[in-house]
């Protein structure tokens, strides 16, 4: 607990507030609130803090639900505190969450970082405080980790390979030289970049031509506007590859509005529930399921392993990505 001395007089108050708030967020299945968390957990189970991006985002709320489900089933093994930020881009709030969890004296932090670089220093301080840190979802930047001189294991899917696999579902439906367009996520996001690279790899492999590629900020309505513009400007586009399902749904609406509802091929990523209906209706061809509900669980399992065996080797773990199509849904 060497870093705690740096925290101000308010640390214990802040910490109990944080734990209170997070137990409310976690619902009635949450852990007991320790009134003096900085004195060390009275409980004999390890306490794991799960720090998410926006819990308003279905992908992350599903992930959190999966983790809570897992905790309820393994209540004898660990306690869980779940926290999220309001806005996916609210870095400073997420950094503050990490610090609050450190102050609250948790044993492990499993985090889906809102930014692959900016979170690293805060996580180093958590490590310095003797807390096990596991990275899920969005991979922390290698170079920054090296600069900070720490190794944090990443547990999660390979987004690039996932995107590649989804794009491959278009094979056989597109011919060499056909035009396609890509709807990218936010450009500063690691996942967004990986998925774009995956799409590009598939395109160059199969000889499709990417005639337009723009960021729609992960948003449905923006994707709708941009996809409409793309389809007008390049009527030859045969397929749109969206880096998440919200954007894919936006593209579906754009296709319909420009009279391309019948023939335009659209793929997404994430397998949210809304896109499943669209896949069943044939409006979306495929999406990638990274088993979002299990992602946090994989991370927690890994953290528990590291807690049990401090000597265990810190290494990454890749989790599976499956392509979902109308056939697999049936």
């Amino acid at each position: 607990m060497t870093s705690i001395h740096a925290r101000s007089w308010s640390s214990s108050m802040l910490a109990s507030l944080a734990v209170m708030a997070s137990s409310i967020a976690a619902g009635c299945g949450g852990p007991d609130v320790d009134s003096q968390p900085t004195d060390g957990a009275a409980s004999d189970h390890p306490r794991v803090a799960l720090i998410m991006k926006s819990l308003a985002n279905e992908f992350f709320s599903t992930m959190a639900d999966g983790a809570q489900q897992h905790q309820r089933e393994h209540a004898e093994r660990y306690e869980l505190v779940v926290n999220g930020i309001k806005d996916e881009r609210d870095l400073s709030r997420q950094v503050a969450l990490v610090e609050e969890m450190v102050a609250a004296g948790v044993d492990a932090i499993v985090i889906a970082p809102a930014d692959s670089k900016a979170l690293v220093p805060a996580l180093r301080r958590a490590r310095d405080a003797g807390i096990v840190v596991v990275n899920i979802d969005n991979r922390l930047d290698k170079e920054v980790l090296e600069q900070e001189g720490i190794a944090i294991p990443f547990v999660g899917p390979d987004n690039r390979n996932g995107a590649l696999a989804v794009a491959k579902s278009l094979e056989g439906k597109l011919a060499t030289g056909d035009a396609i367009a890509v709807l990218e996520g936010i450009r500063t996001s690691f996942n967004g970049t990986q998925r774009r690279l995956g799409f590009e790899e598939a395109a160059s492999g199969a000889g499709w031509e990417i005639v337009d590629s723009q960021s729609a900020q992960w948003e449905m309505s923006k994707a709708n506007t941009i996809a409409s513009s793309m389809l007008r400007e390049h009527p030859e586009i045969k397929a749109i590859l969206a880096a998440n399902d919200s954007m894919a749904l936006g593209a579906v609406a754009a296709a319909k509005a420009t009279g391309r509802g019948g023939d335009l091929l659209i793929v997404g990523f994430d397998n949210i529930s809304a896109v499943q209906d669209a896949i069943k209706e044939g409006r979306v061809l495929a999406t990638a399921d990274q088993h979002g509900d299990q992602l946090a669980v994989f991370g927690i399992e890994h953290a528990l392993t590291l807690l049990d065996d401090p000597e265990a080797k810190v290494e990454d773990r890749e989790t599976p990505v499956d392509v979902v199509t109308a056939e697999t849904l049936r």
């Binding site: 308003a56 709320s61 449905m220 749904l249 509005a257 529930s273 896109v275 209706e281």
Partner: peptide
């Protein structure tokens, strides 16, 4: 919405379709 996008489909589309 339980933070989930709800896909409604064609029953609402006519309002926004030419």
């Amino acid at each position: 919405t339980d933070s989930r996008t709800k896909y409604i489909g064609s029953s609402v589309e006519w309002i926004g379709t030419p």
